[in-house]
Design a protein around this nucleic acid. Structure first.
Length: 698
DNA sequence: CCCTGCGCTTTTTTT
DNA sequence: AAGCGCAGGG
């Protein structure tokens, strides 16, 4: 079975080198191949590689694309660098830095991740005296991000906010944004939004950026949000050589502001756009693809397309019913073990051939346990990442404060870590002074001991802390960053914090190890970067986020992959296990209750199914633990839809709606959960029709 | 100020 | 099951 180098459709997409081009590429149709060949072809035709910009959604995709392009180019000419390939966010950071003076932003800014944002959101809600039962930090962040992805600022949000909840959120948004700026920081949405603002207010900056490139390629175009869409337009309308690649059936980031209409309406924006459809699937064996096609056909409003299998043979997806999540993991892992140990050498599975895909981050627990027990190497992608660990965040916070003491979130994190006698009372007083004087907390610290509001002893401690940070600030920029960080940790005596929090020597050692690993990443950064700075390192760490760690490549080659469906997009594996195919999980309870985004959940399932090359196994449990209690599960409607049993799928959907809407997350035995009486009373009468949480009057 | 233990709530996906 | 906030004793 030989595969053509490029089929006619792919060839046409590669060769259409000027003007707008929409490549509608189904799963497994070789879209990466098209992009890289296109880049190579442009360079072959004499386009200087610096004039080509390719944008991806993840660092991993960017890295991979760079490697592939490099490989293709290497065959033709030696020493040719690949063109600029970058994520949206990294691109925006560079643009903002180049034009920082225009917008009056500092050139150096910290990038706040999800956990920093949560701290900020919590603080904003406290400042405007909103308790968690009215609006939780997570919900606030979701609303803020929604506004930001539509380009709406706090003033605008206050104007359009509907109802109490949104009004409160809009007020908190204003507060959040002020604090964020005061810290000299940006969140991920800000990077995009500020770039958009820069282009709006400063046409000359927009012109300068647009003139840097003659060709623009955007991968995963179905996942662009408002600001990204507008930035693409700004950058492309001069040369019009815009190639976007995507698949509306794989749009799974709607909750993050991605808007499928961008890809659906591409031809309206660019009337002379050429459209190429890639419908030959080279990845999955026919019966798997058939299941995928049948499943996705249940979605309305999509570009009609059918994927044709190139590979024949193979078996239909298996659907296995398990007793509970422990036995699910046991069953799956036992099978993998067995396949790995097979007698027939040619049929043996390697660990890296296998992926276990799931919907939520709590699901992998059971599988990790079993994999360890079976002594099968594995990598858990995403989940609790390196940068989410407490000790790493603490060290990071110290470095951030040293880089920029105005960073209040980080300052508050380390001011009493390890405990140095600056307690909640002292901090509260200092914060109040800061608010009254309208200055950052850091600038208040020198007056602390003089201020009569806090005890003398506390004042001395604050002085000592400030001197400590100042001492390291003055050392910055001379000598190795790695040694700098190492010395800082020693001086600060971070070890004391570990001893306080962790009881067993094993725990302490594990934490020390992750700190060592972190320090190592500083050393690696220094090695590969000319003119390494602390700021530069912090920025890289923020943008790399939960993505790859340097030695993952090596590990991945011998390990079973565990990951969420969202992280699996763009990847493929010979053997895929799609686990937890139950109502409430897949589709998720949330989308069942508000009935809105079932289509997106279906696309998610579709993404999962189309990751499989040779075999696909779907599993579901009869019962699953939740909050310490076992709970009856209904098999996912998607299982039935995949087999064309539409009526049975509808029944499952109805049952799920009943279960999740009326029982407030009811238990296994069918009796209503003993929920808090107040909540019960409120949710029962209105539950049938309400799409939003009923707003209760006080 | 710091630690411990109890009780209450939690329900998705991530650049 | 686990993480958070709060009360109470050193």
């Amino acid at each position: 079975m030989s595969r053509p180098d490029l089929n006619p459709a792919q060839h046409s997409a590669v060769m259409t080198l000027s003007g707008p081009l929409l490549v509608l590429a189904g799963a497994g149709t070789g879209k990466t191949r098209v992009i890289t060949y296109r880049i190579a072809e442009l360079i072959r035709r004499g386009i200087v590689q610096d004039r080509i910009l390719a944008v991806t959604f993840t660092n991993k995709a960017a890295k991979e694309m760079k490697e592939r392009a490099q490989h293709l180019l290497g065959k033709r000419q030696r020493g040719v660098q690949p063109p600029e390939i970058s994520t949206f966010h990294a691109l925006c950071v560079r643009i903002l830095r180049r034009h920082a003076d225009r917008l009056g932003y500092p050139k150096e800014f910290a990038i706040y991740d999800r956990s920093d944002q949560e701290t900020l959101a919590r603080g904003a809600l406290r400042d405007i005296r909103v308790s968690a039962d009215k609006l939780r930090p997570g919900d606030l962040l979701h609303l803020i991000s929604g506004w930001k992805s539509q380009g709406i600022r706090p003033a605008g949000a206050e104007a359009i906010a509907q109802g109490d909840r949104e009004q409160l959120a809009a007020a908190a948004y204003a507060r959040y944004q002020t604090q964020l700026r005061a810290c000299g920081s940006m969140d991920f949405d800000d990077l995009l939004l500020s770039t958009e603002e820069l282009f709006d207010k400063h046409p000359e900056a927009r012109f300068a950026e647009a003139t840097r490139f003659d060709h623009l390629l955007i991968d995963e175009y179905q996942d662009t949000n408002g600001p990204q869409y507008r930035i693409v337009k700004s950058l492309a309308d001069r040369h019009r050589n815009l190639c976007v690649v995507g698949d509306d059936d794989q749009s799974i980031y709607g909750w993050r502001g991605a808007d499928v209409s961008h890809i659906l309406n591409f031809q309206k924006d660019w009337p002379d756009a050429k459209v190429v459809r890639l419908e030959d699937n080279y990845r999955s064996k026919a019966p798997i693809l058939e299941a995928a096609n049948t499943l996705i056909a249940h979605n309305s409003s999509r570009h009609q397309k059918i994927l044709r299998p190139f590979r024949d043979g193979g078996l239909p997806p298996r659907m296995l019913r398990m007793e509970n999540e422990t036995l699910e993991a046991e069953g799956v892992i036992a099978e993998i073990r067995q396949r790995m140990d097979g007698v027939d050498e040619s049929l043996k599975w390697r660990p890296s051939d296998v992926a276990i895909l799931f919907r939520t981050n709590e699901q992998p627990r059971a599988f990790e346990l079993e994999l360890r027990r079976a002594q099968i190497p594995y990598v858990l992608v995403g989940g609790m990442s390196f940068y989410d660990r407490k000790e790493v965040r603490d060290v990071l916070a110290y470095l951030r404060v040293i880089a920029n003491p105005a960073d209040e979130v980080s300052l508050l994190r380390v001011i009493n870590t390890p405990a140095r006698g600056i307690g909640a009372g002292t901090i509260e007083v200092l914060m109040q002074v800061a608010v009254v004087e309208g200055k950052p907390l850091w600038e208040i610290l020198p007056q602390a001991s003089a201020n009569g509001d806090i005890p003398h002893t506390a004042g001395d401690r604050v002085d000592a802390f400030r001197a400590l940070i100042e001492q390291f600030r003055s050392k910055l920029g001379s000598g190795s960053l790695f040694e700098f960080a190492q010395e800082m940790l020693k001086t600060v005596n971070y070890r004391a914090e570990l001893d306080r929090v962790y009881k067993t020597p094993g725990d302490i050692e594990a934490r020390l190890n992750s700190i060592a690993e972190f320090l190592n990443s500083i050393a690696l950064y220094e090695q590969r970067t000319e003119g390494a700075t602390l700021q530069g390192f912090l920025e890289e760490a923020a943008l790399a986020g939960r993505e790859d760690q340097k030695d993952d490549d090596k590990r991945e080659r011998h390990a079973v992959t565990l990951m969420t469906l969202h992280s699996a997009k763009g990847l493929e594996f010979p053997h895929v296990y799609l686990v937890g195919m139950e109502e409430g999980l897949m589709p998720h309870q949330r989308s069942i209750v508000d009935g809105k985004s079932i289509d997106e959940e279906r696309r998610l399932a579709y993404v999962g199914v189309t990751r499989a090359q040779d075999t696909l196994t779907l599993t579901f449990c009869k019962e699953r633990m939740k909050w310490g209690k076992p709970r009856a599960q209904i098999p996912s409607r998607f299982l039935m839809e995949m087999r064309g049993e539409t009526e049975r799928a509808k029944k499952a959907a109805e049952a799920a709606v009943l279960m999740f809407r009326s029982l407030d997350g009811g238990p296994a035995d069918g009796r209503p959960a003993a929920a808090t009486p107040a909540k019960k009373a409120a949710s029962k009468p209105g539950a049938a029709r309400s799409t939003k949480k009923p707003v209760r009057r006080a």
